[in-house]
């Protein structure tokens, strides 16, 4: 009972069910084999494909916990790849490690600045997050095109390829990067007070303000982090294909990320967040995508399955459904038509 009530229970069930279904269909699905000292297999593929989404979703989790949302991450992904590849492509020495490092540095710095920009609009100017980030969502791909001058920039630098397709200690580098950042965020939010203060701001902004919490700087920080993480995801995606496609890199990743966060049990209304839930959510989305491919269905139909998952998840979270499912307890007065203030005896 305790287990069933854990908030990661249902997401985990969904993930396991997907994996089991795949294993029944393809018995070798779960096997991981070693080839040239590298790990291969469907599970590794799922993790590797999840890496950029996970990065974006991590930032999104924190933003959503503060009652915000960041629609611009897809555009930031595109900008990040565009900057890095354009720099490498136009440098006199595109194969050198130092060139790649500088390119990565510039790209990430710019993405961080974009995150700071979003945070400024939201926390200083007080613009609604959905609108504030819509600006960069709209303009961002144009900026990426401007950087690549409308071309799909391609490079061949082996050092850059490592980010998306390299292996280290037998594991894909992208998994290591995503895993490392996941651990970093977990430590940052749970070993410092950042996580608790983010939740406090998301749950009750006014109570937090009166308790002296600096909500402005906290909100600003999470948007900046989200920009940075989207930038890393952008490097990964562009390194995977060794090309910067300003139009299609990271297309709809903001929606997938929001989906991963919601599946992971973090409410869009803000407050309590679960990084583990987001991790599972990202895995579910990638497993779903892979399943569709394995089943021989055209991958383009994936949105349909996503729609079903979103609808199922939000309906499970719907107050109406929850109330019906919860045991009937003695009810207070029904707020007949208007939601009243919290049920405190008002004067």
């Amino acid at each position: 009972m305790q287990l069933v009530r854990h908030r990661l229970f249902w997401p985990l069930v969904a993930l396991v069910a997907l994996l089991v279904a795949n294993t029944i269909n393809t018995p070798s699905f779960m096997s991981v084999r070693v080839q040239d000292g590298h790990l291969f297999g469907a599970l590794i593929d799922i993790m590797r494909n999840s890496a950029p989404l996970l990065l974006v979703a991590l930032g999104m989790t924190l933003v959503i916990a503060t009652r915000g949302i960041d629609l611009s991450v897809g555009a930031v992904v595109a900008i990040s790849g565009a900057v890095a590849l354009s720099f490498i492509g136009s440098s006199p020495n595109p194969e050198a490690l130092s060139t790649v490092l500088v390119a990565v540095g510039i790209a990430l710095a710019l993405c961080f600045v974009l995150g700071v920009w979003n945070g400024f609009l939201v926390s200083v100017l007080g613009i609604q997050p959905i609108i504030a980030t819509l600006v960069l969502m709209t303009a961002g791909r144009g900026i990426a095109m401007l950087i690549t001058e409308g071309q799909i920039t391609t490079i061949t630098s082996p050092a850059y390829r490592v980010i998306g397709s390299g292996f280290w200690l037998g594991l894909p580098v992208s998994i290591l990067i995503a895993g490392g950042i996941f651990a970093l965020v977990a430590v940052l939010t749970r070993r410092t007070a950042l996580g608790m203060l983010i939740e406090a701001v998301g749950i009750n902004p006014e109570a937090s303000r009166l308790a002296g919490v600096q909500s402005r700087s906290i909100v600003w920080t999470v948007y900046a982090m989200t920009g940075l993480f989207a930038g890393i995801a952008g490097l990964m995606i562009s390194s995977n294909v060794m090309a910067a496609d300003a139009n299609n890199a990271g297309l709809f990743i903001e929606l997938d990320a929001i989906l991963a966060v919601v599946i992971g049990g973090t409410s869009l209304a803000g407050g309590k967040f679960s990084l583990g839930g987001t991790l599972i959510g990202a895995f579910i989305i990638q497993t779903l995508t892979l399943t569709v491919t394995i089943l021989g269905i055209s991958p383009s139909v994936t949105p349909l399955f996503k729609a079903i998952v979103v609808i199922a998840v939000v309906l499970m979270q719907a107050p109406v459904v929850r109330r019906t499912m919860a045991s009937r307890r003695p009810q207070g007065p029904r707020p007949a038509a208007v939601e009243s203030k919290p049920v405190e005896v008002a004067a």
Binding site: I258, T302, P303, L304, A307, V314, P319
Partner: peptide, 22 residues
């Protein structure tokens, strides 16, 4: 069901897009 418009229409977006691919 008290779903936020953003999410409800996001689901509808996936649904419509998926159906057109079908």
């Amino acid at each position: 069901f008290d779903v936020q418009p953003f999410i409800a229409t996001l689901a509808a977006m996936f649904l419509a897009r998926g159906l057109s691919y079908v």
